[in-house]
Nucleic acid binder design. Structure first.
Lengths: 162, 162
DNA sequence: TTATTTAGTTCGGCCGAACGAAATATATGC
DNA sequence: GCATATATTTCGTTCGGCCGAACTAAATAA
């Protein structure tokens, strides 16, 4: 490992900062556009995401994950149910509980209409890489995701007063 | 190029799908947490992002980019100005126009308090790669950002009825 | 100069979504 | 079995943010 950084590497690092920022912006804009397309408020979109990632949840669990009051979650489920995006089921074991799960329709729409172009485009990119390059990209994706999760967790509770 | 795909490559591609999804989720959650930290509604956060990316904008330009009515933008600027995040200036050339620009305070907070951990973490990742690997990552970031922008643009105006 | 257009603000009304409190239904402990 | 605890819903209220309409100020055209 050389002690000082080559010009090439300096340039690379600078370009990576810029490219990373643009990637991040593109990701956020894509998700914003999808939520607009689904006609969902940020809260409702977030709830859909939670259900996708953690599978069926009870109303209470949803309230906890989304940091909402129970009453708010009832309304939220009503809205999503009205659009046919989720289904309410009573828990057979504890009939006070309401289980909320995504309907099939949402999964289908996601896979084809919504994520189709994105998935195809990414596959086209991957097709141009060697296995070794794919390993590098995979490693980077995993580690940068971890870094982002840590950075999220470490954000201060409040912004210091200027 | 071999006609069929090796087992290793199949596994890699499957893992990349998963890792890409997690990366995307981590990005969205980071931005959500930052907007919560700043105490900004999604609309206000988006406006801040527009100002960061495109530099100072007039109220009208902001209205167009954010797809808001002029009246809504007046209120939006009021809110951000009250928090000291943006500044209103009259355009000297056309004194009807109001130029909205970020205040310095925001830039400082961004660089240190907010993005600090993220930037450090990414740099640590980069430090473990060779120049060639960095080239691969850079290429991937650029091309995947482009793919995401295209996918965003191609999203249908409405979801097909199921 | 006067009339017209343009940029932004103010005002009033409206709507969606969040909340606390009270109500309902079910489960659990004694 | 009855009292108490838990999960969710219903109700009424509040609040923030968006909008259209009317208004002000400045630029441009006639």
């Amino acid at each position: 490992m050389s002690r000082d950084i080559s010009e090439r590497r300096k340039r690379l690092l600078a370009e990576l900062v810029e490219a990373g920022r643009e990637q991040s912006t593109a990701t956020v804009m894509f998700h914003t556009a999808v939520s607009a397309l689904m006609g969902l408020s940020p809260t409702d979109y977030k709830a859909m995401d939670l259900l996708e990632r953690f599978g069926p949840l009870t109303a209470g669990e949803l309230a906890e994950h989304a940091a909402l009051a129970p009453a708010s979650v009832s309304g939220l489920i009503d809205r999503l149910e009205r659009r046919g995006m989720v289904r309410r089921t009573r828990d057979a074991a504890d009939r006070r509980r309401v289980i909320v799960e995504l309907t099939l329709a949402v999964g289908e729409a996601s896979r084809y209409t919504i994520y189709g172009d994105l998935i195809n485009g990414l596959n086209e990119i991957y097709a141009t890489y060697t296995d070794e390059q794919l390993e590098t990209v995979l490693d980077f994706l995993r580690r940068s995701a971890a870094v982002q999760r840590e950075a999220t967790a470490r954000l201060p509770a409040e912004l210091p007063e200027p």
